[in-house]
Amino acid sequence: MNITNRLKSTEVTVSALAALLAAGAFLMPAWLSFLLTLALAKALVVLGVVLQMRAGLVSFGQALFYCIGGYGVGLGAQSLGIADAFALLALGTAAAVLLALICGFLLTRYREIFFAMLTLALSMILYGVLVKSSALGSTDGFNVAPPSFLGWVPEGDARKQAVYLLTVVIAAAAVIGFNRYLKSGLGRVMEAIRENEIRVDYLGLSPRRLLFANYVFAAAISALGGGLTAIASGHIDPDMAFWATSGEFVFIAILGGTGHVAAPFIGAIVFSVIRTFAIQEAPHTWQMALGLVLIALILFLPKGLWSLVSRKHTKAGNTPAAKEATA
């Protein structure tokens, strides 16, 4: 099957799944659609981490853009009086892109642990600033007023359903769009950069410029996830930029794997479901469980949950391996 047909078949599958999820809005209990909303939004953020992992970079500070997206929505609603959800999401994403253009200029010089720790430092700077900003509610953050949707202002259950549907549509669009990206020349060259930057340079390309573009894409999609989270939960606080939040994104990225654009979505849904129950059952050992699972994943399932899915479809050794697989 050639590439165009393969893309199309993925896109049909994704659209069908999205339609199924959308239809579920009227069937599933409210708690479940809320959980899925947050999980899908989180998956978008994790997709940003995965984009960079495929290029060989581990961002330990993706919460920076998650938080910017959330605060963009919150401030747009509160200070600028914007009510429309699409305008708010666009604002948050644009703010993140702007920030990424500045930070990316600096960060694309760095690789490996330097990149990881510098992204972490940047997100912690934002955290520190937000905690000290009393106008933005300091550590408590503030509530985000329910938005309108192109002039429509839903009430009660309809509001939650609208947010859920919006998230499903955006997630489906992101899967389709980024699937094309990952399979495009540019997306595949990112893997080449991960594998051997010197060779990429000698092929006539600038790894730094390409990584810069990738970084900005990652920032945009993560900010969109942050914006959706803010709208869905109706609240934002500085913890969105905290290191532990970034760590969670890295965790989900490794849990899902980096082999496919759908992997972070599987990872985020599995993560959210387990967390919902684990937080109730064992709140004091939740982090410990995360740590143990993370080590187990690295030792025994380095390509993440996606490798369990893809094993059935492709011949072994034929899939582009994630860096951690043989590292």
Binding site: I113, M288, L294, I298, E324
Partner: peptide, 17 residues
């Protein structure tokens, strides 16, 4: 090296709890 960062991050999570 970057994998070891993730491993020691997992250790951090465990030791925090």
């Amino acid at each position: 090296e970057i994998l070891m960062v993730i491993v020691t991050y997992a250790l951090l999570l465990i030791l925090e709890d």
